[in-house]
Every structure is written in structure tokens, then in C-alpha cells.
């Protein structure tokens, strides 16, 4: 095989050329040479083929190896005397948190779900004292005789109850936010038994109910 003198100067650049390690100026000049030189074009093809061959060949060789116990063996060689049980626990816990956050989160989520399921069951059997009932309920509302208000129980969007005093109509001003007309109007509406709103409105002695 003979090469032109030009090829001899370009040949050492072909290897870094396929590695993408030439500076732009060099690359352009190599490419210019390649466009004119069939031999060097083939050399580049050979280098590329060889590079790929080596890579795949070594991959194949490594595929035949078994790394199952590899890390284990290395760890056994570097692990000093085992620390006390408590220290090991502590370390294992903190490491688990650090590296298996996903697993831990999943585990915790699982545990949380279980708790969510289990807790109401447990609490149903033994709820805090006085809390056998599911929701807070208003059972009765009374007012002082001298008070000029009519108490109403308003139901909120969340199903909670608001016990609110609405001034008697003979009162000049409503109890709530006198400067806010919209509020007044709405309140008046609420106070009217014929309110089209499905808000349950009970006057005087509203009966309990899931409010």
C-alpha cells in the first residue's frame, strides 16, 4: 500500500477526526482532503469500523460476565468491623431515605393509605371521648328574650353551620356589615323562608341536621 505524501500528513489526523477531537480548522482541512482522496476516505471508514467493533466486542465480552455478587464482594472487602446494631440501623435508615426515596415514598404512601383506611375503623370503635358522631351538628338555637335578633342557621358550601343573628325587621339596621349593601340584601334573602336558594334556613328553633 502506498500513500501520497499528502496522505502521510493527513493520516495522523484521521483518528482524532473520527473522535471529533480536531479543532475546526483542522477538521475542515481534513474534510477537504477526504473529498479528494479515496484512500483516506477508506481509512476513515476502517477507523470507524474498528472503533465500533471494539466497542461492541468489549460490550459482548462484558455481557458474559456476571455482576450479581460483584458489588457485594467489594463491599465485603471494604467494610470494617460491623458497627453496633443501633448504628447500623440508623445508617441503614438514613441511607434508605437517601437512595431509595422513591421506594420509601411508595412505602409511606402505602402505609398512609392503610392508615387512612384503618384509622377511621379504629376510631369508629374508639373515637375520642364525645366524638362518636360524624359531623358537628347544631341542634338548637335560642336567644335571649330581650335580644332583637332572629337567629338563623346558615349552611355553608362545605356543609358547616353558621349561627347568625338577623335583626328583627323593626330594627333600623341589620347586624351585619351595614355598609355592604350586597351582603345586606343577600342576608335578607337568606332570612326569608321562601328563599329559592337551597340553603336550609331554620328560624327560631332549627332542628339538628347534617349542616
Amino acid at each position: 500500500m502506498t500513500s501520497s505524501p499528502a496522505c502521510n500528513t493527513y493520516m495522523p489526523l484521521l483518528s482524532p477526526y473520527i473522535d471529533g477531537e480536531l479543532v475546526p480548522g483542522e477538521r475542515i482541512s481534513v474534510e477537504r482532503h477526504l473529498a479528494a482522496c479515496k484512500d483516506c476516505t477508506m481509512r476513515v471508514a476502517d477507523l470507524r469500523a474498528e472503533s465500533g467493533l471494539l466497542r461492541v466486542g468489549m460490550e459482548l465480552a462484558a455481557d458474559q460476565a456476571d455482576f450479581k455478587d460483584f458489588a457485594q464482594k467489594v463491599m465485603a472487602r471494604i467494610t470494617p468491623d460491623r458497627p453496633p446494631l443501633f448504628e447500623r440501623w440508623k445508617l441503614a435508615l438514613s441511607e434508605t431515605f437517601l437512595y431509595q426515596r422513591g421506594t420509601v415514598v411508595t412505602a409511606f404512601a402505602g402505609a398512609a393509605v392503610m392508615l387512612l383506611v384503618a384509622l377511621p375503623l379504629i376510631l369508629r370503635e374508639r373515637p375520642p371521648v364525645g366524638y362518636a358522631g360524624e359531623r358537628m351538628l347544631v341542634q338548637s338555637v335560642t336567644v335571649d328574650d330581650e335580644a332583637h335578633v332572629a337567629p338563623v342557621v346558615l349552611e355553608t358550601s362545605a356543609g358547616n353551620a353558621i349561627v347568625w343573628g338577623v335583626h328583627h325587621l323593626d330594627e333600623a339596621k341589620p347586624a351585619v356589615a351595614p355598609e355592604d349593601e350586597a351582603t345586606d340584601e343577600e342576608l335578607e334573602q337568606e332570612a326569608a323562608p321562601a328563599s329559592p336558594d337551597d340553603t336550609k334556613l331554620k328560624q327560631d328553633k332549627p332542628k339538628g341536621g347534617e349542616l
Binding site: 500500500m1 484512500d39 477508506m42 481509512r43 476513515v44 471508514a45 476502517d46 470507524r48 469500523a49 474498528e50 465500533g52 467493533l53 461492541v56 466486542g57
Partner: peptide, 12 residues
């Protein structure tokens, strides 16, 4: 020259 490349291509 070109033997490897021709035979194997760039994707072995």
C-alpha cells in the same frame, strides 16, 4: 485499505 470498513460498515 478499506477492508474493515467495507466488510463491517460503520455499524458493527
Amino acid at each position: 485499505l478499506g477492508a474493515l470498513g467495507t466488510r463491517l460498515g460503520t455499524n458493527p
